[in-house]
Computed example of a mutant assay.
Amino acid sequence: MRRTTAPALAGLSATALLLSGCGSDSLDDSKSSASSGAAGASSKAAEVTKDDSLAKLVPAAIAKEGTLTIGSDASYAPNEFTAADGKTIQGMDIDLLNAVAAKLGLKITFQNGDFGTLIGGVNAGKYPAAISSFTINAERLKTANMVQYYSAGTAWVTAKGNPKKLDPDNACGLTIGVQKDTVQQTDDLPERNKKCTAAGKKPITIVSEVAQSKVTADLIAGKVDGFAADSPVANWAVAKNDAKLEKVGSKYASAPYGIVVKKDNTAFAEAISKALEALDKDGTYKKILDAWSNGDGAVTSFPVNPKP
Rank of each mutant, 00 (worst) to 15 (best):
K214P: 04
Q185D: 14
K44E: 11
V215I: 12
L104I: 07
K201L: 14
L174Y: 02
L289E: 01
A221H: 06
L104E: 02
I131Q: 02
V260C: 03
K64I: 06
A237C: 00
I204S: 07
S75M: 14
A130R: 03
I108H: 00
V183C: 15
T266Q: 14
A234S: 15
I136A: 05
L9D: 10
T266F: 12
L17Y: 11
P232G: 08
N294Q: 09
T216D: 00
N235M: 03
L141Y: 07
G161Y: 09
E209Q: 14
K165T: 02
R3G: 12
A60H: 06
T205I: 13
R140A: 01
K64Q: 11
S293C: 06
N294V: 04
M1N: 13
L141T: 06
L141G: 02
R2L: 14
L12R: 12
Q111P: 08
E246D: 08
E65N: 10
T186G: 08
K165A: 13
K202E: 15
G153Q: 04
W292P: 02
T158G: 05
A271P: 04
I131N: 03
A253I: 13
S151L: 13
Q148W: 06
K307H: 12
P7Y: 08
G23V: 12
V157A: 05
D296L: 05
V215N: 01
A267Y: 00
D230M: 09
S273H: 07
G177S: 07
K31P: 01
V248T: 11
N79W: 07
D95Q: 08
P303V: 13
K201N: 07
K50M: 11
